[in-house]
Each structure stands twice: as structure tokens, then as C-alpha cells.
């Protein structure tokens, strides 16, 4: 019975916590980048929190899309997927449902990546083909059977990123499994000394986090590279690059749907970092004392991502493939070390 009450409280509270914390993250990242760029930058709440509410209050428009409702529902699906992932890593869900495995998370992540494919194919923005300009006239180059929108170019790139770019993330995800011989998330956490029933803040220093071991450190690097790819942060923002596709699949989101997209991105930043903390520090999100160190540690990856992205340009596939394969190889080395 207690389990079920705990389950219900966790199911309600963890998404709220995720929402509240995640709205800060883009602002923090932006602020760090701005300070690196020698300027003041926006207030911390502006890019995440206030922008979200501002878009909620904008006029609801019909996107130019063959299937507007499906297009608008995709960010919502993404948000729920992300909440589902973070709930799977909580001890309360583990005791009731026993679904929290690394395989489940990897599968849900794939769905999350696939959403961009649908988005891109359903969006027909003004910025490329629909721009009122007499392109196909006498004297112009007349070739090409297909006139492709930016979004569809971005879809091709998403596909390439799904197949190659996010390898490091999945390898990083499975280093703990190899290390501790279990795909259960709670098993990984408890192997690092975490006990959800008795955890108090004092126990923090008696934990034995994976990240301080050799395979853990290597896996963490691979996970971080994959994290950048999943977030489409610089240098892996080829799908969203301003230089040609402007924003890629999300071009047509306006008003509340854009708010949804913002939230989806923010929650992705939070949840992927939260999974990292659960796996590599052994502190899962739960309603209790463990939440405080968890949330503090969650800031690590976004801060790192902000610093890396401030110093890198967009990389094209010419550089993305070798980099991604390099990080994958690093992750594989981590796996091998973990096995030994």
C-alpha cells in the first residue's frame, strides 16, 4: 500500500520538479555562453521560463502542414516521453512496475529522436520553397524534380544523426550495465551504494560513484558527446544549423505549440542529464533527500554543454562522422575496460 502512495506522489511530483528545474536550464546555458562572449546576456529565466509562457499567450495559428494536428501533437508526445523516462528511473516506479531498465530508456530515446523525422516531414515553412519569388522562370536553371523545404533537408540530417550521431550516447548508457552486470537502473544505483529507503544527505560521501572509476570516466565522456548530439547543441547542431536550414523541423511551430517545443527541449536537457546522474553518480531522482544532490549534479552536463558549444562551430557530416565514431570507439574501450 505504501508503495502505491509513494508511486502516486512520485508520478505527480517528479514531472513538476522536472518542469520547474528544466525551465532554468536554457537560461543558465545562455548566460554562460554570453559571459564567454564578453557580454551580459539575458536574465536566467528569460530564454526558458518566460519565453515558454509568452508563447502560450500568443495567437493560435494553423501551421502550414499537411497534418496540422499531428504536427502540433508531436512536442506533447516528446514531453510525455521524457517524463516517462525520468519516472522510469525513480525508485518508486521500480518497486511497483519494475520497468526501469536501460533498454527501456534506450528505446524511448530512439522514439524521441524519431519525432524530429515526423516534425520535419510535416512542416512547410515560408522560408524556402514557399517564399514568393519567381524561381522557375525562363532563363533560370531548370532542373530538379523535387523542390525541397529546409525541414526536409533537416530530416535527412536527422536520419543520419540517428544512425550514427547518437551512438556514443547509447554506448555511454550501457557502460554501467556492463560494469555491474545488470540492465536494471536500481541495480546500477544500488551497486554504487545507494539505498532509496534509508538515504540521507550524510550518505552522499559513502557512495561509490561509477564516474570516478576508469570505465565510468570513459563512458561519461562518450555519454557527454552523445548528449550534445541528442540536444542538437553546437557543435552537433547540423540539423538545426542557422547557416542553411535555419531551425530545421521546428520551423512551423508557433504560439502554444512552440511553447510545447521549448518545454520539450528544456525537459530533454534535464532528463538526459538526470539519467546521467542516476547512472554515473548512483543518485536517482526521488521524493526525498536524494533529490537535492541529484538536481545539483544535473546542472553539470548542461553547463559543460554550454561551455563546449560556445567554443565550437557547427560541424558538417565530414567532421561529425569521424568525431562520432571516435567517441563511439572511446565508449567501446570503456565497455571493454568495464568487462575486465
Amino acid at each position: 500500500m505504501m508503495d502505491w502512495i509513494d508511486f502516486a506522489i512520485t508520478t505527480v511530483c517528479i514531472p513538476i520538479v522536472a518542469f520547474v528545474v528544466s525551465t532554468w536550464l536554457p537560461g543558465i546555458m545562455r548566460k554562460i555562453q554570453a559571459r564567454i562572449q564578453l557580454r551580459i546576456g539575458p536574465p536566467v529565466l528569460t530564454p526558458g521560463f518566460w519565453a515558454f509562457f509568452k508563447f502560450l499567450y500568443k495567437e493560435r495559428i494553423r501551421p502550414v502542414s499537411p497534418m496540422p494536428r499531428l504536427y502540433h501533437s508531436l512536442p506533447v508526445i516528446g514531453i510525455f516521453l521524457m517524463f516517462f523516462i525520468i519516472l522510469l528511473t525513480t525508485p518508486a516506479w521500480e518497486t511497483v512496475l519494475t520497468l526501469g531498465t536501460l533498454v527501456a530508456i534506450a528505446g524511448l530515446m530512439k522514439v524521441e529522436e524519431m519525432l524530429y523525422l515526423f516534425m520535419g516531414n510535416l512542416s512547410k515553412s515560408i522560408l524556402s520553397v514557399r517564399m514568393p519569388y519567381p524561381d522557375q522562370v525562363k532563363g533560370a536553371v531548370m532542373k530538379g524534380k523535387v523542390r525541397r523545404f529546409f525541414e526536409q533537408v533537416a530530416v535527412v540530417r536527422t536520419f543520419k544523426l540517428i544512425s550514427i550521431g547518437s551512438f556514443p550516447l547509447y554506448i555511454g548508457l550501457f557502460v554501467p550495465a556492463v560494469m555491474y552486470g545488470s540492465i536494471g537502473i536500481m541495480a546500477v544505483a544500488s551497486a554504487q551504494g545507494f539505498d532509496p529507503a534509508t538515504f540521507v544527505l550524510r550518505d552522499l560521501f559513502s557512495l561509490d560513484p561509477l564516474i570516478f572509476t576508469v570505465p565510468g570516466a570513459i563512458g561519461a565522456i562518450a555519454y557527454f558527446a552523445g548528449y550534445l548530439v541528442i540536444l542538437n547543441e553546437y557543435p552537433f547542431s547540423i540539423m538545426h544549423t542557422k547557416a542553411d536550414v535555419v531551425e530545421g523541423p521546428t520551423l512551423e511551430y508557433a504560439a502554444w505549440a512552440r511553447a510545447g517545443y521549448y518545454l520539450m527541449r528544456e525537459v530533454t536537457i534535464f532528463v538526459m542529464s538526470s539519467v546521467f546522474v542516476t547512472l554515473y553518480f548512483g543518485i536517482p531522482p526521488m521524493i526525498g533527500w536524494a533529490l537535492i544532490p541529484h538536481i545539483i549534479l544535473v546542472m553539470l552536463l548542461p553547463v559543460g554543454a554550454a561551455i563546449v558549444s560556445a567554443f565550437t562551430p557547427v560541424l558538417t557530416f565530414k567532421q561529425v562522422y569521424p568525431l562520432s565514431l571516435g567517441f563511439s570507439a572511446l565508449g567501446v574501450i570503456g565497455l571493454i575496460v568495464a568487462m575486465l
Partner: peptide, 18 residues
């Protein structure tokens, strides 16, 4: 960075929908 519109909470976008 001399003038930096972002510190006044104004952000640049290239997407009319945004």
C-alpha cells in the same frame, strides 16, 4: 557585445513563427 540587445531580454530569431 558592445550593445547586446539580449541583456534587455530581446533575443534574435530568424523564424517568423517565433
Amino acid at each position: 557585445p558592445f550593445y547586446d540587445l539580449e541583456q534587455y531580454k530581446v533575443m534574435l530569431t530568424w523564424n517568423p513563427r517565433e
